[in-house]
Simulated assay, not measured.
Amino acid sequence: MTPVDISQKDWYAILDSSPSDSIQELKQKYQRLALLYHPDKQGPDVAAGEVEQHVQRFIEVDQAWKILSNEETRRAYDLQLRAHKLKQSWPVDAHICLDDMECDEDEHIYTYSCRCGGQFIIGKEDVEEEESVICCDTCSLSIEVKRSA
């Protein structure tokens, strides 16, 4: 699966949840919202514009569930969320050139080993920016990845 782009949506907010919620809590919130916004559950007295808004909300809720219910995509999303927050307020521990990272063509990602034994992971679509700050998947260290030296 390709990494999820954080700039698109706040998937936790869409499910009225938080990153600390368990999979069971997420499932309950998803089911409640899916029933509330499902197109088949809309009454005949609902205005056409409101029905369209409910359909769009249902699609967002479904997308959020698909991302957050899968352990792999949730982990990738959480890492991107954490990196985004670090980029805004945390110092960078190292500056790395993209050429120094290992490229995994099958997964469409670049990786770089952290001194703790963890990995810095960035998706190929994320390297289009001139600079990206990413954090280790194990510790609190962060690096800034530059496309060119």
Results as ranks from 00 to 15, higher is better:
I96P: 02
Q80M: 04
L86F: 01
C103W: 08
E60S: 14
I96G: 00
G118E: 13
I121R: 07
T111S: 13
R82F: 07
T111E: 08
V61E: 01
W65Y: 13
D106M: 13
E71I: 09
D93N: 15
R57F: 15
F58V: 05
A83P: 03
R115N: 14
H84T: 12
S113G: 08
Q80P: 00
L98F: 05
S69L: 05
L68Y: 07
E72Q: 11
L81R: 12
P91R: 07
D93Q: 03
V92F: 00
C114A: 14
I122S: 02
K87W: 05
D62K: 07
Q88C: 01
E107D: 10
S113H: 07
H54Q: 15
A64I: 06
Y112C: 02
T73D: 09
D99Y: 11
H54A: 15
W90Y: 12
L81P: 10
V61I: 04
Q88D: 12
M101L: 04
Y77C: 07
K87E: 13
D62S: 05
E72T: 11
I67A: 10
L68I: 13
L98N: 09
Q80D: 14
C97W: 13
T111G: 07
I109A: 07
F58P: 01
G117L: 06
F120Y: 10
Y112W: 09
Q88E: 13
E125G: 09
H95P: 01
L86C: 06
Q88M: 14
L86E: 01
D100I: 04
G123P: 02
A94F: 04
T111L: 03
Q80N: 07
